[in-house]
Every structure is written in structure tokens, then in C-alpha cells.
Amino acid sequence: MLRLGVLDQTPVLTGSNAVEAMKQTVELARITEKLGYSRYWVSEHHDTISLAGSSPEVLLAAIGAHTSRIRIGSGGVMLPHYSPYKVAENFRVLEALYPGRIDLGIGRAPGGMPAATRALRYGRPPEIAEAFPAALEELGGYLRPVRGTAEVRPGSGLQATPLVETSPEIWLLGSSDYSARRASELGASFSFAHFINGEGGQSAVQHYYETFRPGPLGAEPRANACVMVLCADTDEEADRLAAPLDLKLLLLEQGRFGIDITLEQALVYPYTEFERIRIRHNRKRMLVGGPEKIKTQLLEFSRSYGVEEVIVNSITPDFASRVRSYELVAGLF
């Protein structure tokens, strides 16, 4: 049976605000747990008005307090901005609060524009991003202390506290084969962001499985793929609800950020022929349709990736249709 997880980017929906977006994230976690989803991940974005989640660690503490079974995690923490030691401590705190339920998803993208990156790194040289593999090994040494990793820790015997008996699952997130290679070399689980890049993910996951070896980030290969899914009661309604997302992705490609788009505006937007081609291309990152169409597409998607778990990212014009999408998809499996 196909397992389904959730990626929630905490979108600030049209006519809403960041406070409401945070409440909706916590509420959606409660709902999807009841629906039987396997895990619930929240993202990290900076200096954007359309996505409210800038601190996944803080948001996860709230989500954990309102759920009891579903795995919760970051999708993901942008490690080049931070001290591996502090990231390890944050997630050990979460693991102590919610034992056996925490996923530490790690990315290397900036999660924002250059000004935000400079502020987050606070004067540290940009070359720190080039030390990503070493930072991963150091993080693994703090979270999963195994033979051969102690020498990468800065300080003899340094431990990330609190000391708890369980450890987070460590996932590398990526939209290319780079993170797949790093995950297979270091023993991490791997999640491909198909919702960002609709091409090349299947080969990246295949390479991950073929070359995986145990390491400081884990011992067993585990992979999934994340895709945008918009499910409604009919194919026609799903296609209608996808119109604002189609337009927003197009405007982002054109460097037009932070534009609030209503469903009505999207439905009457005067697309050029080239823009329609771009929308069809972006639809490769999305599954849109009624229940039967989505069931067929999800099964084909999981088979093409060779994975038994798919992470679903649903963004619709309003919260009710978002919830409905997750309800319909859960009912298929």
C-alpha cells in the first residue's frame, strides 16, 4: 500500500495573513494525522510574504503538541546558514518532547534572496556553503554518535544535549542528483523535490539506491518523492482550482514575487502562447484531477520513482479546498 506524507509550506492564502497561516498549519497537521498520513513536514523560507514558515523548529514544537502519532519534521532546515551543533540541539529537544516522531530534513538551498542569506549567516564567509558535506558529517556525529565520527566534532567529547535514547531520522532533500549522492555516501534518507524540478528525479533516486552505504547519517536506504497534488471532486473543478498556482509559478519565473492572485484573476488572465507552454511545462511538477485520475497518477508516479511513500504538497485558493484535497487523496489509499 502506498504511504502518503504531507509537505506544508504554510502558505498565506489570498485575503488571509501570516497568523491565520500558522493556525492553518497546526490544524492541517491534526486533520492529516486523523486521515492516516505518514509524516508532516514544514518548510523554511525567508523574507517572503506568501509563505509564513521561516522557523520549522519552532513550528514543529507547536505541531507536536497538537498531534500524537504522525511523524513530524523539517522540509527542511537550510544547514549552510547554521551551526551543525545548534541544529543538533534543536532537534534533540524536539526528539525529547516527541520521542520517535521527529524527522530532520536538511537542505542546502538559501530559502530566500541574497539579503536574507547574508543576514542569516551574519558575517560568515559564503564559502561555508561549500563545506556542506563536512557540516553534514559533523551533524551526524552529534545526532548519531557511531565509531569513526568523533574526530569531526569541534571539541573533545562534545555532546548535543539533551541526551535522549532516540534520534531523529535524517533526510537530505534535493531537486537534483547532488543531494542524492551525498545521502548515499553518508547513509541519510533521501527525498526528491519533484514539486521544484519535474525532471531527473527518478534517475537521482535510482542512483541513491544503487550506491547507498551506511554512514554517519543512517544505516538503511529510505527514499520518497514530493509532488504538488491538487485533488477535487471532479477533474474540471481541480483544473479550475489549480489556475492561481499555475499563474503564480509563471510570475515567479518572470521574477515577479509577492503578487497576490485571486481565483477570479487567474481564470481570466490573458496568457500568451509562450506562457501557456510554460504552464504546461510546470504542470509536470503537479498532479491535478479528480479522485480516479489522481489515484492513477499517484500510483504511476510512485512506480516511476521506485518509492513506497509520496509526500503530497497541496496549495489551493482557500483552506477548505486544501483540506478537501488531502481528504480525497487519503481516501484513495
Rank of each mutant, 00 (worst) to 15 (best):
L298W: 06
A238V: 04
A219Q: 14
V146H: 03
G75Y: 02
F190L: 10
A180L: 05
I259T: 13
Q24D: 14
V152A: 12
C226I: 09
E127H: 13
Q9T: 11
T25G: 07
P216E: 09
R222F: 08
L241D: 00
Y142W: 06
R285C: 11
E185C: 10
A129R: 11
L136F: 09
A109Y: 04
I63S: 07
V307W: 11
G200R: 00
V26E: 06
Q297I: 00
L251W: 10
T48I: 15
Q254P: 01
A223S: 14
T48C: 10
R324H: 13
P270V: 08
H194R: 03
A204Y: 01
A96E: 09
I315G: 04
I128H: 12
P291I: 05
M78L: 15
G140W: 06
Y122R: 15
Y208K: 10
W41A: 06
A116D: 04
T211A: 14
Q265C: 03
V146A: 07
S83V: 08
K284I: 03
G53K: 00
A243I: 04
G157W: 06
A183D: 09
P216I: 02
G258Y: 01
R108W: 01
V268D: 12
E292N: 12
L28P: 00
Q24S: 12
P99Q: 03
I277Y: 12
R324D: 10
A61R: 12
T161P: 07
V164W: 08
E130A: 14
G290S: 06
P214D: 07
Y37V: 10
E309H: 14
S176D: 02
Q159F: 08
L143A: 03
T161Q: 12
A150K: 11
D318F: 04
M22T: 12
E137Q: 15
R108A: 12
S179T: 13
S321C: 04
Y37R: 05
T211Q: 15
I170W: 05
T117G: 09
D260H: 11
D8F: 07
D8P: 06
G141T: 07
Q297S: 15
L158S: 13
E308Q: 13
G155M: 09
V229M: 09
E253K: 11
G100Q: 05
R285A: 04
S184I: 03
N313C: 12
R324F: 07
L7N: 06
S167D: 07
S50Q: 15
P216Q: 07
R118Q: 13
S38W: 02
E236P: 00
L94V: 02
T166S: 15
P317T: 03
S184C: 08
E237Q: 11
A131G: 12
S55P: 02
A266H: 02
L249K: 11
S38F: 10
E220D: 14
E57H: 13
L158Y: 09
Q206E: 15
G218Q: 08
L247H: 00
M286H: 03
I261N: 01
Q159K: 13
M113V: 05
L172P: 06
L250H: 00
G198D: 01
A219V: 12
F132M: 11
G76I: 02
R276S: 04
E264C: 04
P125T: 10
P125K: 14
L247D: 02
